[in-house]
């Protein structure tokens, strides 16, 4: 009996993987075909982007401040506090900005998409679209995934900038530094590859967050309990995938840096 249950679980796992792959495949099949729901994409960009700004601003600012504060004692040991702007710039632009944004968006956007689509699924609103000859995948999924893919890189860059301001504020608490001087010194240590890698990472993060939220919500079942489960799984899975992508992309960018 336990053997058959194990077999069933393995089977279900592979069925799930196959379903998810088809769901992602459908995106690439339909994204370039008409009709294009530009208005809905813009609407979703507003929901994903503009409405996340306050949270991203606060988180970015605090991350920059706290990271600078925690790094200071170690640098002080070597009398190297003047390296703080370049250290912070590298850390924030290469890793923290895009990663913090992705994690915040996994929680805020991923869960919201999962819950919204899940609720639409269990209340038959998605079926209602289908019977009205409206392609719900195109209208709901493609618009949301495009919105997260476009908006999260922009939010990532914005978060990096705000985090650097947070870092600058912390630096000025201990020593007098000009705003321009801090940023000139900081930006001097950043290469095009750093910014490019950060934006590329954010594009992948945005796609993943949108796709996971949509997949979990679109396939929600079992009433309101299913909606909660979809929202929860969207957050957990997208965060997990974000970390996996972070490791892979950082590794690839390091190889590029070597050559």
């Amino acid at each position: 009996m336990p053997h058959s249950k194990f077999k069933e679980k393995i089977n279900n796992y592979f069925i799930g993987v196959s379903d998810a792959a088809s769901f992602v495949g459908l995106f690439f099949k339909q994204v370039f075909s008409v009709p294009f729901h530009f208005r809905e994409i813009i609407n979703q960009c507003y929901v994903v982007g503009l409405k996340s700004l306050p949270l991203i601003s606060l988180t970015g600012f605090i991350t920059g401040m706290v990271f600078t504060k925690q790094s200071r004692p170690s640098l002080e040991t070597f009398g190297a506090t003047s390296w703080l702007p370049s250290l912070m710039s590298i850390a924030i632009v290469r890793a923290l900005g895009s990663l913090v944004t992705a994690l915040i968006c996994s929680g805020k956007i991923g869960s919201s998409i999962g819950a919204e689509l899940g609720s639409m699924r269990v209340t038959e609103q998605i079926d209602a679209m289908e019977v009205s000859a409206i392609n719900p995948y195109k209208y709901l999924v493609i618009s949301r995934v495009l919105a997260t893919t476009i908006t999260i890189p922009v939010l990532g860059l914005y978060c990096s900038f705000i985090a650097l301001i947070g870092s600058f504020v912390n630096v000025t608490m201990y020593e007098s530094t000009s705003f321009i001087g801090f940023f000139e010194y900081g930006f001097a240590s950043i290469t095009f590859l750093d910014v490019f890698t950060s934006v590329t990472k954010s594009v992948f993060f945005g796609f993943t967050i949108g796709m996971v939220g949509c997949y979990k919500g679109y396939n929600a079942a079992n009433g309101t309990q299913g909606v909660g489960k979809a929202a929860n799984q969207a957050v957990v899975l997208s965060m997990f995938l974000v970390f996996i992508e972070e490791i892979v992309i950082v590794q690839v960018s390091n190889w590029i840096r070597l050559y």
């Binding site: 609720s119 209340t123 038959e124 009205s132 409206i134």
Partner: peptide
């Protein structure tokens, strides 16, 4: 539909206009 399946994010007028606008 049994539970009407009205689109929660749209008002009545938008709910009715939606199938026409899309098709």
């Amino acid at each position: 539909f049994q539970n009407s399946a009205l689109y929660d994010s749209m008002n009545v007028g938008q709910n009715l206009a939606f199938p026409l606008q899309m098709n």
